[in-house]
């Protein structure tokens, strides 16, 4: 049966486990999967550019032996002619077996999924959801920390607008014995509805701080995000705060030896390049893990669609 993935919470924890198991099997035995999607086509339908996400989906499909139809200018080719997202999804359903879609409007992937006759994977719908990023984050945590529980997870930077952060909290809140440390300037604190509806509702411990240095020593995972200039009301606040959320080799000295440093990328300057060679830097592994999880998800959805 056709099934789409719009939000990370569309996948149960059992399904996450099975996707992780598939991804780890792909990592161990890539040749076994080299023809798994032979004869199948993935359409990457991007209404706004996101080269790294599109490349990850396309590389994933190629490594499964499938083919790719790439629409990089969906916004100019269909939307400018007034075509609705629903009609575009119906049309693409005639050519491809599965869609990965990126769109600037929130909820666009659900509209496409409701209209398409083939599975749709949300590759980002505005500030709303980006489930395959969270899947990449989860595989990284699993491979680096060995578990999804008993972790102290620091989230640093823009916690207000960062959808990757909200999504990771939603995903990790389903596992026991984790604690969150929310590190951000006052202006970019985690929205109260996330605190109330997720953390407080589930009784998950968390603390809030404005100091990365103060939080670092207790963390098992540090998820960095970019503090963007345009989020601030005035330039002085931005200049005052931007450097306090830069992780560099000097600050990292205070951290645990087995800390896992993550970042959804692209980074600008929030992680200094002198961190890159540190074994605790996991953000490029995260990119690779994203490809493996996308492979696992494409396999799962194509298999379910054929049943």
């Amino acid at each position: 049966m056709k099934r789409s993935v719009i939000d990370i919470l569309d996948l149960s924890t059992e399904e996450i486990e099975s996707l992780i198991a598939t991804a780890q099997d792909i990592i161990a035995r890539p040749a076994e999967y080299a023809h798994a999607c032979a004869g199948k086509k993935l359409a990457t339908l991007f209404f706004e550019p996101s080269t790294r996400t599109r490349l990850s989906f396309e590389a994933a499909m190629y490594e499964l032996g499938g083919n790719v139809l790439s629409v990089t200018d969906a916004a100019t080719s269909s939307a400018s002619k007034g075509e609705s997202v629903a009609d575009t999804a119906r049309t693409v359903s005639c050519y491809a077996d599965i869609i990965a879609m990126r769109h600037p409007k929130e909820g666009a992937a659900l509209v496409a999924a409701n209209a398409a006759s083939i599975p749709v994977i949300n590759a980002g719908d505005g500030g709303h959801c980006h489930p395959t990023q969270t899947m990449a984050d989860l595989l990284t945590i699993r491979r680096e920390k060995g578990a999804f529980s008993g972790l102290t997870i620091g989230l640093c930077g823009d916690l207000k607008f960062g959808r990757t952060v909200h999504s990771l909290i939603n995903a990790m809140a389903r596992y026991p014995d984790n604690k969150f440390v929310l590190i951000s300037p006052e202006e970019l604190k985690l929205p109260s509805y996330v605190k109330k509806d997720v953390l407080q509702e589930k009784g998950i411990p968390y603390e809030q701080t404005t100091s990365l240095e103060a939080a670092l020593p207790q963390l098992d995972v540090l998820y960095m995000t970019r503090v963007q200039r345009e989020r601030f009301f005035n330039e002085e606040d931005y200049l005052r705060l931007k450097d306090s959320y830069i992780l560099d080799a000097a600050k990292l000295k205070a951290a645990k030896g087995d800390l896992c440093v993550m970042h959804p990328l692209p980074r600008v300057n929030e992680i200094a390049t002198d961190v890159d060679a540190d074994p605790r830097a996991c953000y490029f592994k995260q990119v690779l893990n994203g490809k493996y999880m996308r492979m696992a998800l494409i396999l799962k959805l194509l298999k379910e669609a054929a049943q």
Partner: peptide
């Protein structure tokens, strides 16, 4: 920013 602000016949 919601898709319903632009998508017709939804």
């Amino acid at each position: 920013r919601c898709i319903t602000s632009v998508e017709r016949s939804i």
